[in-house]
Amino acid sequence: MKLLLITAVAEFENEVKQILKKAQVKTFSYREVTGYRNTSEDAIESNWFGTEMNENESILFYAFVENDKVDDVFNGIDEFNAKQETLSHIHSAIINIEKSN
Rank of each mutant, 00 (worst) to 15 (best):
G35P: 02
T39L: 12
Y36G: 00
N67W: 08
N56T: 10
N67A: 10
E66D: 15
E66R: 08
E57Y: 07
F49C: 06
N81H: 07
L87S: 13
M53Q: 12
N54P: 00
T86H: 08
D72F: 12
N67F: 07
R37G: 06
Y62Q: 06
M53K: 13
F64G: 02
W48L: 15
I90C: 03
W48V: 10
F80H: 09
W48C: 10
N75H: 10
D68G: 01
D42R: 11
S88A: 12
M53W: 14
V73C: 03
A82N: 14
T86E: 14
Q84V: 04
N75Q: 13
V70G: 00
T39Y: 10
N81T: 05
I59H: 05
F80V: 00
L87G: 15
M53G: 00
S46P: 05
E32W: 06
E52R: 12
E45W: 09
N67G: 07
E66T: 01
L87C: 08
F49Y: 13
I77A: 04
Q84H: 06
E85V: 14
I90G: 00
E45S: 12
F49D: 10
T86D: 14
F80W: 05
F64K: 12
F61T: 01
D78F: 08
D68C: 04
S46A: 14
K83G: 08
G76S: 01
F74L: 15
T39G: 11
E52C: 05
M53Y: 13
I59W: 07
E45M: 08
Q84Y: 11
D72S: 10
L60S: 03
S58F: 00
K69F: 04
A82W: 08
G76F: 02
F61K: 01
K83R: 13
S40H: 13
V73K: 02
E79A: 11
E85R: 13
A43T: 13
D71N: 13
Q84A: 07
Y62R: 03
G50E: 03
E55R: 07
S46I: 14
N47M: 02
A82V: 04
N47L: 01
T39E: 15
N67Q: 14
Y62M: 05
V70W: 06
V33N: 05
G50F: 04
H89T: 13
H89P: 01
T51G: 11
A82L: 09
E52G: 09
N56G: 06
V73H: 02
N56I: 07
E45G: 06
Y62L: 07
T34V: 11
G35V: 00
N56L: 13
H89N: 14
D78Y: 10
F74I: 06
V33K: 05
V65E: 01
S58W: 04
N81E: 08
E52Y: 11
N38F: 05
N56H: 13
D72P: 00
V33C: 06
E52L: 06
G76P: 00
D42S: 15
F74M: 11
